[in-house]
C-alpha cells in the first residue's frame, strides 16, 4: 500500500520488542494493524477488505440480483 501511494507509510512492528506500543494499542493478537492511531484492524483480512477497512471506505455494494 505504501509503495502504491506517496501519502501512505507502512511500519511493520515486532510486537514483543516494543512492549510500550503493544500495550498502548492493546495488541493482544497478531497481526493487528493500527491506522492513523485510531482505526484497529484485527487479523489478516482479504486484500480489498483490508484496504477498505484501513481507508474507512464502505463495503462494495453487492451486485443486483438477477
Amino acid at each position: 500500500m505504501a509503495f502504491a501511494n506517496p501519502h501512505i507509510t507502512a511500519s511493520a512492528i515486532e510486537a514483543t520488542e516494543f512492549m510500550e506500543l503493544t500495550r498502548r494499542y492493546q495488541v493482544t493478537g497478531v497481526p493487528k494493524t493500527i491506522v492513523n492511531e485510531t482505526i484497529e484492524i484485527m487479523g489478516a483480512l482479504p486484500e480489498e477488505m483490508f484496504v477498505r477497512a484501513a481507508l474507512q471506505l464502505p463495503d462494495e455494494p453487492a451486485p443486483p440480483a438477477s
Partner: peptide, 16 residues
C-alpha cells in the same frame, strides 16, 4: 482504491 488516497495514512502492523 489506493489511488484515491490524498491525505496521510500511517499503517502500523504488529506481528511476532
Amino acid at each position: 482504491l489506493l489511488a484515491g488516497v490524498t491525505t496521510p495514512v500511517h499503517l502500523q502492523v504488529f506481528s511476532t
